[in-house]
Protein backbone atom coordinates (compact mmCIF):
# COMPACT_ATOMS: atom_id res chain seq x y z
CA UNK A 1 0.00 0.00 0.00
CA UNK A 2 1.46 3.35 -0.95
CA UNK A 3 2.25 5.74 1.84
CA UNK A 4 0.36 9.01 2.04
CA UNK A 5 3.30 10.88 0.61
CA UNK A 6 3.18 8.87 -2.62
CA UNK A 7 -0.55 9.10 -3.31
CA UNK A 8 -0.26 10.89 -6.60
CA UNK A 9 3.27 10.36 -7.78
CA UNK A 10 3.99 8.10 -10.68
CA UNK A 11 7.58 7.60 -11.77
CA UNK A 12 8.61 10.44 -14.06
CA UNK A 13 11.89 11.53 -15.55
CA UNK A 14 11.90 14.86 -13.71
CA UNK A 15 12.86 13.10 -10.49
CA UNK A 16 15.86 11.43 -12.10
CA UNK A 17 16.76 14.79 -13.62
CA UNK A 18 16.56 16.45 -10.21
CA UNK A 19 18.76 13.80 -8.59
CA UNK A 20 21.30 14.13 -11.38
CA UNK A 21 21.40 17.92 -11.46
CA UNK A 22 21.58 18.36 -7.69
CA UNK A 23 24.31 15.71 -7.60
CA UNK A 24 26.38 17.51 -10.25
CA UNK A 25 25.80 20.91 -8.66
CA UNK A 26 26.74 19.65 -5.20
CA UNK A 27 29.85 18.05 -6.70
CA UNK A 28 30.93 21.31 -8.36
CA UNK A 29 30.02 23.44 -5.34
CA UNK A 30 32.03 21.12 -3.11
CA UNK A 31 35.07 21.54 -5.36
CA UNK A 32 34.58 25.32 -5.48
CA UNK A 33 34.14 25.72 -1.74
CA UNK A 34 36.90 23.36 -0.80
CA UNK A 35 39.36 24.19 -3.60
CA UNK A 36 38.70 27.91 -3.54
CA UNK A 37 38.66 27.95 0.24
CA UNK A 38 41.99 26.13 0.39
CA UNK A 39 43.52 28.54 -2.12
CA UNK A 40 42.22 31.52 -0.19
CA UNK A 41 43.45 30.08 3.10
CA UNK A 42 46.88 29.45 1.58
CA UNK A 43 47.09 33.01 0.27
CA UNK A 44 46.08 34.50 3.60
CA UNK A 45 48.55 32.20 5.38
CA UNK A 46 51.33 33.44 3.09
CA UNK A 47 50.15 36.98 3.69
CA UNK A 48 50.34 36.43 7.46
CA UNK A 49 53.81 34.91 7.22
CA UNK A 50 55.04 37.77 5.04
CA UNK A 51 53.44 40.50 7.09
CA UNK A 52 54.99 38.90 10.16
CA UNK A 53 58.52 39.54 8.86
CA UNK A 54 60.63 42.47 7.73
CA UNK A 55 64.27 42.89 6.73
CA UNK A 56 66.83 45.57 7.43
CA UNK A 57 69.79 45.93 5.09
CA UNK A 58 72.95 47.77 6.19
CA UNK A 59 75.33 48.28 3.26
CA UNK A 60 78.99 47.41 3.78
CA UNK A 61 80.06 50.01 1.20
CA UNK A 62 78.96 53.62 1.12
CA UNK A 63 77.47 55.30 -1.93
CA UNK A 64 80.96 56.31 -3.09
CA UNK A 65 82.12 52.69 -3.06
CA UNK A 66 84.29 53.08 0.02
CA UNK A 67 84.39 50.20 2.50
CA UNK A 68 82.65 50.77 5.80
CA UNK A 69 84.26 47.82 7.53
CA UNK A 70 85.15 49.92 10.55
CA UNK A 71 81.59 51.25 11.05
CA UNK A 72 79.48 48.25 10.07
CA UNK A 73 79.66 46.42 13.39
CA UNK A 74 78.58 49.56 15.23
CA UNK A 75 75.70 50.16 12.77
CA UNK A 76 74.48 46.60 13.27
CA UNK A 77 74.54 46.95 17.04
CA UNK A 78 72.73 50.32 16.90
CA UNK A 79 70.09 48.98 14.54
CA UNK A 80 69.51 45.87 16.69
CA UNK A 81 69.15 48.08 19.76
CA UNK A 82 66.60 50.35 18.03
CA UNK A 83 64.64 47.39 16.65
CA UNK A 84 64.54 45.43 19.88
CA UNK A 85 63.37 48.53 21.75
CA UNK A 86 60.51 49.16 19.32
CA UNK A 87 56.92 48.21 20.15
CA UNK A 88 55.47 45.56 17.85
CA UNK A 89 58.80 43.92 17.08
CA UNK A 90 59.12 40.53 18.69
CA UNK A 91 62.69 39.84 17.59
CA UNK A 92 65.60 41.02 15.45
CA UNK A 93 68.61 38.88 14.47
CA UNK A 94 71.62 39.34 12.22
CA UNK A 95 71.67 36.79 9.43
CA UNK A 96 74.98 34.93 9.94
CA UNK A 97 77.60 34.97 7.13
CA UNK A 98 77.34 31.20 6.51
CA UNK A 99 73.56 31.50 6.04
CA UNK A 100 74.13 34.44 3.69
CA UNK A 101 76.53 32.23 1.78
CA UNK A 102 73.87 29.55 1.40
CA UNK A 103 71.32 32.14 0.28
CA UNK A 104 73.70 33.57 -2.31
CA UNK A 105 75.18 30.30 -3.55
CA UNK A 106 72.72 29.91 -6.47
CA UNK A 107 74.06 33.17 -7.91
CA UNK A 108 77.74 33.34 -6.86
CA UNK A 109 78.61 29.65 -6.38
CA UNK A 110 79.57 27.58 -3.38
CA UNK A 111 83.23 28.59 -3.14
CA UNK A 112 82.79 32.34 -3.35
CA UNK A 113 84.46 34.49 -0.70
CA UNK A 114 81.63 36.58 0.65
CA UNK A 115 83.89 39.07 2.34
CA UNK A 116 85.11 40.13 -1.09
CA UNK A 117 81.61 40.85 -2.29
CA UNK A 118 79.73 44.09 -1.49
CA UNK A 119 76.96 42.27 0.29
CA UNK A 120 74.97 44.19 2.88
CA UNK A 121 74.43 42.94 6.41
CA UNK A 122 70.92 41.56 6.76
CA UNK A 123 68.81 41.73 9.88
CA UNK A 124 65.71 39.53 10.08
CA UNK A 125 62.93 41.26 11.96
CA UNK A 126 59.94 39.37 13.46
CA UNK A 127 56.80 41.48 13.61
CA UNK A 128 53.96 40.98 16.05
CA UNK A 129 51.11 40.82 13.51
CA UNK A 130 48.45 41.47 16.14
CA UNK A 131 50.29 44.64 17.28
CA UNK A 132 52.44 45.73 14.35
CA UNK A 133 55.00 48.54 14.82
CA UNK A 134 54.71 52.05 13.44
CA UNK A 135 56.96 51.49 10.43
CA UNK A 136 57.07 55.21 9.55
CA UNK A 137 58.41 56.11 12.98
CA UNK A 138 60.78 53.14 12.90
CA UNK A 139 62.21 54.25 9.56
CA UNK A 140 62.67 57.74 10.99
CA UNK A 141 64.52 56.40 14.06
CA UNK A 142 66.75 54.22 11.93
CA UNK A 143 67.47 57.06 9.50
CA UNK A 144 68.64 59.22 12.38
CA UNK A 145 71.14 56.75 13.76
CA UNK A 146 71.89 54.36 10.87
CA UNK A 147 71.34 56.57 7.82
CA UNK A 148 72.36 53.99 5.22
CA UNK A 149 70.05 51.26 6.58
CA UNK A 150 67.19 50.21 4.32
CA UNK A 151 64.04 48.79 5.93
CA UNK A 152 62.07 46.36 3.73
CA UNK A 153 58.61 45.60 5.13
CA UNK A 154 57.71 43.39 2.10
CA UNK A 155 54.70 45.61 1.44
CA UNK A 156 55.44 45.63 -2.26
CA UNK A 157 55.27 41.82 -2.43
CA UNK A 158 52.23 41.77 -0.16
CA UNK A 159 50.05 44.05 -2.30
CA UNK A 160 49.57 41.67 -5.25
CA UNK A 161 49.10 38.77 -2.85
CA UNK A 162 46.33 40.66 -1.08
CA UNK A 163 44.81 41.51 -4.42
CA UNK A 164 44.91 37.84 -5.53
CA UNK A 165 43.40 36.70 -2.21
CA UNK A 166 40.58 39.24 -2.62
CA UNK A 167 40.07 38.12 -6.22
CA UNK A 168 39.91 34.46 -5.18
CA UNK A 169 37.35 35.28 -2.52
CA UNK A 170 35.22 37.24 -5.00
CA UNK A 171 35.48 34.44 -7.52
CA UNK A 172 34.33 31.88 -4.94
CA UNK A 173 31.34 34.04 -3.99
CA UNK A 174 30.48 34.69 -7.66
CA UNK A 175 30.66 30.99 -8.51
CA UNK A 176 28.55 30.04 -5.51
CA UNK A 177 25.88 32.60 -6.47
CA UNK A 178 25.96 31.38 -10.07
CA UNK A 179 25.69 27.72 -9.06
CA UNK A 180 23.03 28.50 -6.46
CA UNK A 181 20.90 30.35 -9.02
CA UNK A 182 21.39 27.59 -11.58
CA UNK A 183 20.32 25.00 -9.02
CA UNK A 184 17.26 27.07 -8.08
CA UNK A 185 16.16 27.52 -11.70
CA UNK A 186 16.74 23.83 -12.34
CA UNK A 187 14.54 22.87 -9.39
CA UNK A 188 11.83 25.24 -10.67
CA UNK A 189 12.09 23.66 -14.13
CA UNK A 190 12.01 20.10 -12.76
CA UNK A 191 9.03 20.97 -10.55
CA UNK A 192 7.11 22.52 -13.44
CA UNK A 193 7.87 19.51 -15.63
CA UNK A 194 6.62 17.20 -12.94
CA UNK A 195 3.50 19.33 -12.36
CA UNK A 196 2.73 19.22 -16.08
CA UNK A 197 3.20 15.44 -16.11
CA UNK A 198 0.91 15.01 -13.10
CA UNK A 199 -1.66 17.67 -14.07
CA UNK A 200 -4.67 15.29 -14.35
CA UNK A 201 -3.86 13.72 -10.99
CA UNK A 202 -3.40 17.09 -9.31
CA UNK A 203 -6.65 18.40 -10.83
CA UNK A 204 -8.51 15.35 -9.51
CA UNK A 205 -7.06 15.57 -6.02
CA UNK A 206 -7.78 19.29 -6.02
CA UNK A 207 -11.43 18.58 -6.88
CA UNK A 208 -11.58 16.05 -4.07
CA UNK A 209 -10.85 18.84 -1.64
CA UNK A 210 -7.12 18.66 -1.13
CA UNK A 211 -5.95 22.05 0.10
CA UNK A 212 -3.06 23.96 -1.44
CA UNK A 213 -0.85 23.17 1.55
CA UNK A 214 -1.53 19.44 1.27
CA UNK A 215 -0.58 19.31 -2.40
CA UNK A 216 2.37 21.67 -1.97
CA UNK A 217 3.76 19.73 0.96
CA UNK A 218 3.64 16.47 -0.99
CA UNK A 219 5.82 17.98 -3.70
CA UNK A 220 8.11 19.95 -1.43
CA UNK A 221 8.86 16.96 0.83
CA UNK A 222 9.46 14.76 -2.18
CA UNK A 223 11.92 17.24 -3.70
CA UNK A 224 13.56 17.82 -0.33
CA UNK A 225 14.37 14.10 -0.12
CA UNK A 226 15.42 13.94 -3.77
CA UNK A 227 17.72 16.96 -3.51
CA UNK A 228 19.24 15.67 -0.27
CA UNK A 229 20.01 12.31 -1.87
CA UNK A 230 21.42 13.94 -5.03
CA UNK A 231 23.55 16.43 -3.11
CA UNK A 232 24.84 13.74 -0.73
CA UNK A 233 25.88 11.65 -3.73
CA UNK A 234 27.58 14.69 -5.30
CA UNK A 235 29.55 15.44 -2.12
CA UNK A 236 30.50 11.80 -1.71
CA UNK A 237 31.86 11.75 -5.26
CA UNK A 238 33.84 14.97 -4.66
CA UNK A 239 35.47 13.90 -1.38
CA UNK A 240 37.90 11.31 -2.80
CA UNK A 241 38.94 13.79 -5.50
CA UNK A 242 39.60 16.50 -2.92
CA UNK A 243 41.46 14.07 -0.74
CA UNK A 244 43.58 13.03 -3.75
CA UNK A 245 44.36 16.64 -4.65
CA UNK A 246 45.33 17.41 -1.03
CA UNK A 247 47.61 14.38 -0.89
CA UNK A 248 49.17 15.27 -4.25
CA UNK A 249 49.84 18.87 -3.21
CA UNK A 250 51.32 17.79 0.12
CA UNK A 251 53.59 15.35 -1.67
CA UNK A 252 54.63 17.32 -4.75
CA UNK A 253 54.47 20.93 -3.67
CA UNK A 254 54.72 21.13 0.11
CA UNK A 255 55.44 24.86 -0.09
CA UNK A 256 51.78 25.29 -1.05
CA UNK A 257 49.98 25.28 2.23
CA UNK A 258 46.62 23.61 1.67
CA UNK A 259 45.15 25.02 4.81
CA UNK A 260 42.29 22.66 5.53
CA UNK A 261 41.09 21.47 8.88
CA UNK A 262 38.56 18.96 10.10
CA UNK A 263 36.11 21.90 10.10
CA UNK A 264 36.53 22.22 6.35
CA UNK A 265 35.61 18.56 5.95
CA UNK A 266 32.76 18.84 8.43
CA UNK A 267 31.50 21.85 6.45
CA UNK A 268 30.93 19.58 3.48
CA UNK A 269 28.26 17.81 5.52
CA UNK A 270 26.22 21.02 5.37
CA UNK A 271 25.90 20.90 1.58
CA UNK A 272 23.15 18.19 1.37
CA UNK A 273 20.90 19.87 3.99
CA UNK A 274 21.38 23.25 2.31
CA UNK A 275 20.40 21.73 -1.05
CA UNK A 276 17.42 20.01 0.59
CA UNK A 277 16.28 23.29 2.14
CA UNK A 278 16.70 25.13 -1.16
CA UNK A 279 14.69 22.44 -2.97
CA UNK A 280 11.94 22.54 -0.33
CA UNK A 281 11.50 26.32 -0.44
CA UNK A 282 11.79 26.56 -4.24
CA UNK A 283 9.35 23.70 -4.83
CA UNK A 284 6.91 25.03 -2.25
CA UNK A 285 6.74 28.42 -3.98
CA UNK A 286 6.59 26.92 -7.48
CA UNK A 287 3.74 24.53 -6.64
CA UNK A 288 1.82 27.19 -4.75
CA UNK A 289 2.04 29.50 -7.77
CA UNK A 290 0.91 26.65 -10.04
CA UNK A 291 -2.07 25.77 -7.84
CA UNK A 292 -3.30 29.35 -8.04
CA UNK A 293 -4.17 28.57 -11.68
CA UNK A 294 -6.85 26.21 -10.33
CA UNK A 295 -10.12 27.58 -8.97
Amino acid sequence: MPKKSSIFFTPDSSRFFLVWITGVMAFVITLVIYGGGAAYSSLTAWQRSISGAATLQIPTYDDKGMSRADAIEQDVETALTILRASNGISGAELVPDDQMGRLMSPWVGEGAILSELPLPKLLNISVDTRNPPDFVQLKRDLADQVPLAVLDTHRIGLAPLLSVAGGVLHLIVFLLILLGLTTTFTIVYATRTSLAAHQPVIALIHLMGAGDFYLTRQYAVRHLKTAFAGAAAGVLCAVPILWGISAFVRHCAPEFIVATTSWHWAGLLLIPPVFAGLAFVTTFKTVLTYLKTFL
Binding site: P2, P200, V201, L204, I205, M208, G209
Partner: peptide, 20 residues
Amino acid sequence: FRLLDHLDAFDNVALPLRIA
Protein backbone atom coordinates in the same frame (compact mmCIF):
# COMPACT_ATOMS: atom_id res chain seq x y z
CA PHE B 1 -14.28 7.79 -13.95
CA ARG B 2 -10.94 9.63 -13.51
CA LEU B 3 -9.35 6.77 -11.62
CA LEU B 4 -5.62 6.95 -10.95
CA ASP B 5 -4.01 4.20 -12.97
CA HIS B 6 -0.96 3.92 -10.71
CA LEU B 7 -3.11 3.13 -7.66
CA ASP B 8 -4.98 -0.13 -7.14
CA ALA B 9 -8.74 -0.26 -6.56
CA PHE B 10 -8.32 -0.05 -2.79
CA ASP B 11 -6.13 3.04 -2.89
CA ASN B 12 -8.33 4.75 -5.46
CA VAL B 13 -11.34 4.38 -3.18
CA ALA B 14 -9.29 5.38 -0.13
CA LEU B 15 -8.11 8.62 -1.76
CA PRO B 16 -10.76 11.01 -0.30
CA LEU B 17 -10.23 9.59 3.20
CA ARG B 18 -6.47 10.00 2.94
CA ILE B 19 -6.84 13.57 1.68
CA ALA B 20 -9.10 14.26 4.66
